[in-house]
Amino acid sequence: MIEVEDIYFTYPNGIEALKGISLTIKNGEFVAIMGQNGAGKTTLVKHFNGLLKPTKGKVLVDGVETTKVSVATLARKVGFVFQNPDHQLFSETVEDEITFALKNFGFKETVIKKRVSWALNLLGLTQYRKTSPFMLSGGERKRVALASVLAWDPKILILDEPTIGQDYQQKEKLRQFILQLKAQRKTIIIVTHDVEFVAECNPRVILMREGKIVADGEASKILTTPEVLNQAFIVPPQIAQIFFQLSDLGFPRDIIDIYEAREILLKAIRRKTM
């Protein structure tokens, strides 16, 4: 569980990136943190594994204040996949890349072997075991980065902008993957401004603007409230836009799910034709 109590954060250059944030993320929750570039999303999530410590206020992970323990200790519990995989890949082979963190955390040799195979398999990277990560495509490098974090099986997983630079199919795989982790009761926090992706995942949405939270709630509520979205400079997902325009015909306004939309439209068509 992550508890954030009224935190402020100012970078050394004087930029105040967080201005009074409070929130609680329970175990097993799936949260999307959204907002335009520079809203402070990355700054906020870097507080969850102790990379940044609040200038004021406190952050507790499972009841322990982040200022009291090292990043390495927290990282064991809180996995963080950075936006750009090139900022972390350095090993000769994909296998070594995944081994790196496991060694840092002091896993036993036999356990490491098992975990590496497991993670490679999970992300469909087994055929690249002995390949240099630098030879892989962008999407594959992103998967290696993800595998290298999942390998130690953290109970909380933070993904910073996981959909950037991914094609539709990769995004769909990622979505399936996240849902699978969610089914295993992992806590998942994604940082993104990809509304379509969030609409398809339907997580709890936390909307940020200029270092503050402007809304917090279900995706279907927040992504269909234009006033709130405008504040955070986000455009509603396409399905929501269609239903806005149909709302004067008596259609509901809070639809973001394809299947739900289909049901409603089918019902309307049947009523017309009968």
Partner: peptide, 11 residues
């Protein structure tokens, strides 16, 4: 950023 990314992997 790189330092942060590696610290997050237990370095």
């Amino acid at each position: 950023t790189i330092m942060d990314a590696q610290k997050a992997r237990g370095l």
